[in-house]
């Protein structure tokens, strides 16, 4: 019991990033947003549109997406990290474009299109899930 308690105490200490680092990161993101004066809704819209364009050419791992405004020395930068799962073939790109046009004509949101692509590549998703399972079972 006691050793378990101590272990947990120590582990928490060693694995946690320091609160000093945490506050610095929080502030950097916070101030980037404050300074640009972009509303969260506009950032979200920009994010969706960028994703839409990029996913026409490559398949993005939606779990690993990072999309932040950061700043240093009173200058702001948009940092987007979009992990690529696989490159689409030219055929697929052409298909996608046709689909996009169709969707645009129907005046629908981008969501159905995303569902489509996820359905197409379900094997890859399954694989990543398996990996997730095995790593988590290793730690317990």
């Amino acid at each position: 019991m006691l050793t378990e308690f101590l272990d947990r105490l120590f582990q928490r200490h060693s694995t946690q990033t320091s609160s000093r680092e945490t506050v610095k990161q929080r502030l950097q993101i916070l101030l980037a947003h404050d300074r640009t004066d972009l509303s969260p809704a506009m950032v979200e819209q920009m994010r969706n549109e960028i994703l839409q364009v990029v996913s026409r050419y490559v398949e993005i791992d939606s779990e690993g997406i990072e999309f932040l405004l950061e700043n240093s020395d009173r200058a702001t930068a948009l940092i987007a990290n979009l992990p690529i799962r696989r490159i689409r073939t030219e055929e697929q790109i052409a298909e996608e474009q046709a689909a996009t046009l169709q969707v645009a004509e129907e005046d629908a949101a981008e969501n159905p299109k995303l569902d489509l692509s996820l359905g197409e590549f379900s094997p890859a998703e399954l694989n990543s899930n398996e990996e997730g399972m095995s790593t988590s079972s290793g730690t317990t």
Partner: peptide, 11 residues
């Protein structure tokens, strides 16, 4: 490491 340093704030 429990508080931002002067350098952190100034940066």
């Amino acid at each position: 490491d429990l508080m931002m340093s002067v350098k952190d704030v100034q940066e």
